[in-house]
């Protein structure tokens, strides 16, 4: 449709939309800049205590120090790695379990209350047990992240499966489809939007799991920097890690969103 000749009115309309979008982005960036500038000034003027709230210039110094020590990317990398493994595993294993539940209505009904209980339970409470079982290291962190996203995935993907249009299943049955074919041809493809939204939720949950896990056991990673910074009263370290964490979380969410747009092309 790009090469179509639009009327003047339509061109005006498009321009207006574009201007509005630019305005929104500009204001968003301005807010960010203002926030950091006022933070810096307030700290410089000792209106707020830089020891307690840190200050952008100190954070930059700390960033450079980490970079020079060569540990900056190591910490970011470790945390991102754990998070990605956590939410990818959570989504895949959760979906597989949801498929098994779909295959047997009986098992699904039997397990229903247990899933509800597990879902209500704050999974973080299982942290110490997981460390005890899995060991005091990275696998435990990933396991905690996985625990947090797993049950939600099972529940949301299962309910997505149940919402699949019964008549579409009936249509396949008119061709004599087997249960496996029904899964492959209609249940899975029409649940892709649900699975992607589970993936999106899991990205967020996985960050929570990983950071908590790192609080408990880690020797490296952003979560470790946050706890360690707190223990040695280095608020620069804490604040910087939180900011890096926010940026990383945002980027990861965007990547999943791009993935979503790509896969939902046919929705038009």
């Amino acid at each position: 449709m790009l090469n179509k000749n639009y009327s003047k009115e339509h061109e005006e309309y498009l321009k207006k939309l574009k201007r509005r979008k630019m305005a929104i982005i500009t204001v968003q960036i301005l807010i960010l800049i203002l926030f950091f500038v006022q933070w810096e000034i307030m700290a410089n003027l000792k209106i707020v205590d830089p020891f307690l709230v840190s200050q952008p210039s100190r954070m930059v110094k700390f960033l450079i120090k980490l970079y020079n020590e060569g540990t900056l990317f190591r910490h970011i990398g470790v945390t991102c790695y754990e998070t990605i493994i956590g939410f990818v595993l959570g989504t895949i294993i959760g979906t597989i379990i949801a498929i098994l539940l779909w295959a047997s209505d009986f098992i699904s009904k039997v397990l229903d209350p247990y899933l509800v209980v597990l879902n209500a339970l704050p999974k973080i409470a299982l942290g110490p047990i997981i460390i005890f079982w899995v060991g005091n290291g990275q696998p435990a962190i990933i396991a905690i992240a996985l625990m947090i996203s797993l049950i939600v995935t099972i529940i949301s993907v299962s309910s997505g499966f149940k919402e699949v249009d019964k008549d579409k299943i009936k249509l396949l049955q008119t061709f004599g489809a087997s249960k496996l074919q029904i899964l492959r041809y209609v249940v899975l493809p029409s649940s892709i939007p649900t699975m992607i939204s589970a993936l999106k939720i899991n990205v967020g949950l996985s960050w929570v799991g990983v950071i908590v896990g790192e609080f408990l056991v880690a020797q490296e990673g952003l979560g470790f920097l946050i706890v360690f910074g707190g223990q040695v009263a280095q608020l620069d370290m804490v604040m910087l890690s939180i900011i890096i964490l926010s940026v990383a979380a945002y980027l990861m969410y965007e990547i999943v969103a791009i993935f979503e747009r790509k896969y939902l092309r046919w929705r038009g």
């Binding site: 249009d165 008549d167 009936k170 008119t174 061709f175 493809p189 029409s190 046919w266 929705r267």
Partner: peptide, 16 residues
Amino acid sequence: CNKIGYMLQRDHLFEW
């Protein structure tokens, strides 16, 4: 079954 073609009340084309 394979000898029967059943067109349901709506077209149920698969969007994907």
